[in-house]
Amino acid sequence: MGLFSWKPRSKRATAPQSGGRDAKAETIAHLRSFVSAHTGCEAFIEPPTRVTQTTMVIVADTGEWTRRRVPDEATARRLAQQFSIPAFDVNLSGYPSRMREWNEQQRKNLG
């Protein structure tokens, strides 16, 4: 089973969609690029809600961060393992203070 494997929900969804594969490759490339360009990265896995699917937030030691959708928690953990970064359940750990501080600094710089 692939990293972003899924089961189609209907017969219409069984047709191959190169856009989906492209999006998966772009997501992985983006996350890999972020991790390689920043030091001290950690992954924070956000569970799905009624309006969003599972997401993965990667936070650098500077507090800079990026967020991308992932199929599920297991996929997020596998990606974190591939990138050699620790992964945390955001409901258990919360977000790191450096992320909040970076966000606040960005707000000050914009306004």
Results as ranks from 00 to 15, higher is better:
residue 55 T to N: 07
residue 100 R to T: 02
residue 43 A to N: 10
residue 49 T to F: 07
residue 86 P to L: 13
residue 59 V to I: 00
residue 110 L to N: 13
residue 103 N to G: 08
residue 42 E to C: 07
residue 27 T to H: 02
residue 18 S to Q: 11
residue 61 D to T: 12
residue 38 H to Q: 09
residue 30 H to D: 14
residue 70 V to C: 08
residue 54 T to S: 12
residue 1 M to T: 15
residue 10 S to I: 01
residue 100 R to P: 01
residue 97 S to T: 10
residue 21 R to D: 11
residue 20 G to N: 11
residue 55 T to E: 04
residue 21 R to H: 03
residue 76 A to P: 02
residue 44 F to S: 11
residue 9 R to N: 03
residue 79 L to V: 02
residue 59 V to P: 00
residue 24 K to P: 01
residue 83 F to R: 07
residue 38 H to L: 11
residue 107 R to S: 12
residue 13 A to I: 12
residue 18 S to M: 14
residue 9 R to M: 01
residue 33 S to T: 06
residue 48 P to Y: 13
residue 92 L to R: 05
residue 32 R to M: 12
residue 4 F to K: 06
residue 69 R to A: 07
residue 80 A to Y: 03
residue 15 A to G: 09
residue 34 F to S: 15
residue 74 A to P: 14
residue 22 D to F: 10
residue 98 R to K: 04
residue 33 S to K: 10
residue 32 R to C: 09
residue 1 M to L: 10
residue 51 V to F: 11
residue 95 Y to H: 07
residue 90 V to E: 03
residue 35 V to Y: 00
residue 102 W to C: 03
residue 50 R to N: 02
residue 60 A to N: 02
residue 9 R to S: 01
residue 15 A to I: 06
residue 52 T to M: 10
residue 77 R to E: 06
residue 109 N to F: 15
residue 17 Q to I: 11
residue 84 S to K: 06
residue 97 S to V: 01
residue 79 L to T: 02
residue 92 L to Q: 07
residue 9 R to D: 00
residue 80 A to H: 03
residue 21 R to S: 10
residue 90 V to K: 05
residue 37 A to H: 06
